[in-house]
Amino acid sequence: MLIRRTADILPSEITPPDVYRSRRNFLAQAGGLTAAAALPMASAHAATAFGPLAASPLSTTETPTSRRAVTTYNNFYELGTDKSDPAENIHRLKPSPWTLRIEGLVNKPRSLGIDELLKLVPPEERIYRMRCVEGWSMVIPWVGIPLGSLLKLVEPQGSAKYVEFVSHYDRATMTRGVLDWPYTEGLRLDEARHPLTILAVGLYGEVLPVQNGAPVRLVVPWKYGFKGAKSLVAIRFVERQPVTAWMKAGPSEYGFYANVNPDVDHPRWSQATERRIGEFTKRKTLMLNGYSDQVGSLYAGMDLRRFY
């Protein structure tokens, strides 16, 4: 049985991606032709299910992967271990109503729903490269909020050094075994605060589909995709480095950092190249997934072979 979530927007009101993309292209071109003063904000905004979204200088200009591929080729083991499974099992996760807890070593812990979250920090469009540890990649136009802005609001205590992310898990409807549930991930506090790190609530200008981690998920574009824990129920500030679900599953294969690195192979396969979904030949994988300029300094002096 398909349980439909009550949308807070009519499907007819949602602008199809191809329409808003062409609008955006038009606006961008118009913005280029007209003096900046004549169209002050037009080129930076586009109409979406979230209202006008601010574009970000952190977005890539590469062509996004098709919406169909982004929403049918997913690793979301709670909804099945084949990549086509999650899109077929969306009824197993009900993304509304939802509560996200922010807890641990913070002065102002709080629980909040998605609407509240979006009122606290306005969503932006972030077009990011996504590199999976399995050797494929995509370009995904996320809608998300900078995690750092949210972290500031809860006032982390001085002893908080790491942030742990916990995904929703319901034993009755979701995959049993395979990993030690619930799925957990972690970041160093400075990684969590980095402007590139976002909590995604949508993609292609629309509400985040269940198979992509609805209603809210982590996106850390310079790390392998599995760091982006889906369907988050808790963000926890802790003192010690958390042990993540994949570290428990294979400590020799998956480390805490999981930074995209063409020079550090997975023990069983090379990470030097990747297949961009939709392309025929492989491309070279870039250090830190091409975000070295922005995040390289986070790892200055660290041996990334040891801290993989």
Partner: peptide, 19 residues
């Protein structure tokens, strides 16, 4: 299809990747 005749990469795979 997968390696597109990248012989050095293929040779490395065969020698280095147990699977």
């Amino acid at each position: 299809l997968d390696q597109f005749f990248d012989w050095p990469a293929i040779a490395k795979d065969i020698l280095k990747r147990p699977f």
